[in-house]
């Protein structure tokens, strides 16, 4: 194995060993996505029943509304879990007061980021796959029925989550433990602009402009198009991908700057205090 890959594996192994030894951590990975799915699943079922029972309502329209809601919940969890996966893996090093050893090893900052992304991918799959299973078993909703395009939805939402996570880590490097709370909350703040449960068209004009800049909004427009019309909106996927590249480039530049500043200010010595 090349030394760079081995260093990345070293940090991945650190987190895998941690999860293997801590059932509360394992449970936490799936707990929230499954709970969300249960709550939104019953909500979707209720709404679908009301739509189907309304004058002029059809079972087909009701099923689509329910599916759009469940698809939104599941896919938004992909972005949330990806972002939290990176940020929490980084904070695990702070909580264990281990960063001093990590940063004086030959591990390059980009190898650290690579390892954090690997941990995030594993955490996301461990959280979202059970929720997808629950959606199928309890509500007969199969996300994968959308076809291979689901993989592209996943990839774009993961990229957005990772970009936000790099921004959060940059803030932790800058402001220390005071910025940790952002790891849990920052992506929720983008939910109104991500068009998870409604089309961008229902937003007021100024919010629409902001929503356009959010990669997830294009993913969810694409998801609804795939659900309702059965078409793949390559234009929306292209926009999401392009925006993600811009977000990741900006987040990478911010991380590189803050990492260097942290080394200059001595923040790596007492991070988390």
């Amino acid at each position: 194995m090349k030394p760079a890959f081995r260093r990345v594996w070293g940090l991945l192994y650190r987190h895998l060993a941690l999860y293997r030894r801590s059932w509360p951590r394992l449970l936490e990975l799936a707990y929230w996505p499954v709970l969300q799915m249960c709550i939104w699943g019953f909500t979707a079922r209720f709404l679908a029943q009301r739509i189907a029972a309304a004058p002029g309502g059809s079972i087909h329209a009701a099923a689509l509304a329910g599916a759009a809601l469940l698809g939104g919940v599941l896919l938004w969890e992909v972005a949330l879990r990806s972002q939290m996966g990176v940020a929490i893996a980084f904070m695990e090093e702070i909580w264990s007061r281990n960063l001093g050893h990590v940063f004086v090893s030959p591990l390059r900052p980009w190898e650290l980021v690579g390892a954090l992304l690997g941990v995030s991918l594993a955490r996301m799959l461990a959280g979202v796959l059970p929720a997808i299973g629950v959606a199928y078993l309890l509500y007969a909703f199969n996300l994968f029925a959308l076809g291979p395009v689901v993989v592209l939805f996943f990839a774009n939402l993961m990229m957005m989550g990772w970009a936000v996570a790099l921004g959060v880590i940059s803030l932790i490097l800058r402001h220390g433990a005071g910025a940790e709370a952002l790891a849990w909350s920052v992506l929720f703040g983008l939910t109104p602009f991500a068009a998870v449960f409604y089309p961008v068209a229902v937003l007021p004009a100024p919010m629409r402009a902001l929503a356009f800049m959010v990669p997830a909004s294009h993913v969810f427009e694409g998801m609804r198009a795939a659900l309702i019309s059965g078409v793949t909106r390559w234009d929306q996927l292209g926009l999401a991908f392009g925006l993600n590249l811009v977000w990741i480039a900006a987040a990478t530049a911010l991380f590189a700057y803050q990492f260097r500043e942290a080394r200059r200010r001595g923040a790596l010595l007492g991070i988390g205090e």
């Binding site: 070293g10 940090l11 060993a17 030894r21 090893s105």
Partner: peptide
């Protein structure tokens, strides 16, 4: 890392 065993800790740094 306090939750990891001594061997796991040494393995991590051995890889790094």
């Amino acid at each position: 890392p306090a939750r990891l065993t001594v061997a796991e800790n040494l393995r991590i740094y051995g890889h790094l």
